[in-house]
Design a protein around this nucleic acid. Sequence first.
DNA 1: TGTATTTTAGACCAAATGTACTAAATAATT
DNA 2: AATTATTTAGTACATTTGGTCTAAAATACA
Lengths: 208, 208
Amino acid sequence: MQNIKSKILEQAKKLFNDKGVSNVSIREIAREVGISHSNLIYHFKDKNELLNHLHQQILNAAVDIDKEISNEENTLKSLFISTVRGFEIIYDYRFFMIDFNSILLENKELHQQIKEIEVFRFRLYEARIAKMIGEDIFRNEMYKNEYEDLIIQIRIFSDYWVSSSQIYEQNPQLSIKKYARLFICFFRPFLTPKGHKIFNQLLSEFEL
Amino acid sequence: MQNIKSKILEQAKKLFNDKGVSNVSIREIAREVGISHSNLIYHFKDKNELLNHLHQQILNAAVDIDKEISNEENTLKSLFISTVRGFEIIYDYRFFMIDFNSILLENKELHQQIKEIEVFRFRLYEARIAKMIGEDIFRNEMYKNEYEDLIIQIRIFSDYWVSSSQIYEQNPQLSIKKYARLFICFFRPFLTPKGHKIFNQLLSEFEL
DNA sequence: TGTATTTTAGACCAAATGTACTAAATAATT
DNA sequence: AATTATTTAGTACATTTGGTCTAAAATACA
């Protein structure tokens, strides 16, 4: 039996996903949960507090993925795993990315936190790429800061593919795999012949 | 002397850029323009009508760019020109991309129009790429639908780079060139040796 | 000049929202 | 069993918002 706080968070997530964060009021969430709005405020003093908790859930899910791939010795495979699982989480909490800018505009602490996480994410990809260059899976840079460019490009793709899918796809949920594949393909031009071999195996293994 | 309609549109654009579309009311725009809210409603019956007109301004600017590059015989150069000019326009109307999803969620006709324009844009890039393959500037596909993937990737980048810059950049306005360069660099892995030569010349010509 | 049309402001309304306050109900603790 | 703390609902309030209606003012026009 789940407690009232998780019920509230669950319903808030659902409403945010369906209607957009700014179109959902505290009162509406309370109504859906079946409690009074003052009771909801007792548990979460405002929308930002709800968003902070939901963001924490996302972070926890991300940490779970990191654990999951920590045993994987195939670096390219761990990239595939974290992408597919990560994209499912992003879809599950899609309101967060769809309303990314307006959320962070009104929540400065969260904005700061996101910026710090981004620094971490950047370094993580740098390390991953360096490792794969060492393993002769990725080639060396063809021009200065080529991989730095790539990491920014995939940051934007990661953050906004779900927004774009909402606009252009008939069934966004069914297109999660499509976008996961597109993300993975960002790395394709940088693969060595050896890398290509592993990559193509993984593509069919993951049915992408 | 500009008329009242363009004054309203100008002020709406400014407020939308500063505060986000959903945080700006008809009344607030009217207050800033210095007219009554009922007068504003007389000219534009609701926010959607304002957004439709502002979107039309964006389209007009895009058409101007197309004219501008229509004389350019260097296909790669016309890509550079349209990118740099296009990114400036996107920044000027950044509210539109930052609130892209919530705008289209509440404006179905505009959503439909955007989807049709996207089909057009897709074909445009297909044609551009095909032309440059013919000119030995781009290489042939290494795998099936490689360029189709690329076009989707750059669509997402085009649509959301300005959102991302708002979140991660100290001074988004100063970073327009940075993102224009990043966009251009999407094409870099696909260049032939001949293409690389022209590309590098253009990079310094455009100071990117 | 007189008439019609367009533009403008102001008042009013109902609905929604965040917030604060109070008191009742429930659970925990001693 | 008594008391203390936590949880819950209800009410009330000020503000904002989109929208409608009316009438005055400005403009165009015949």
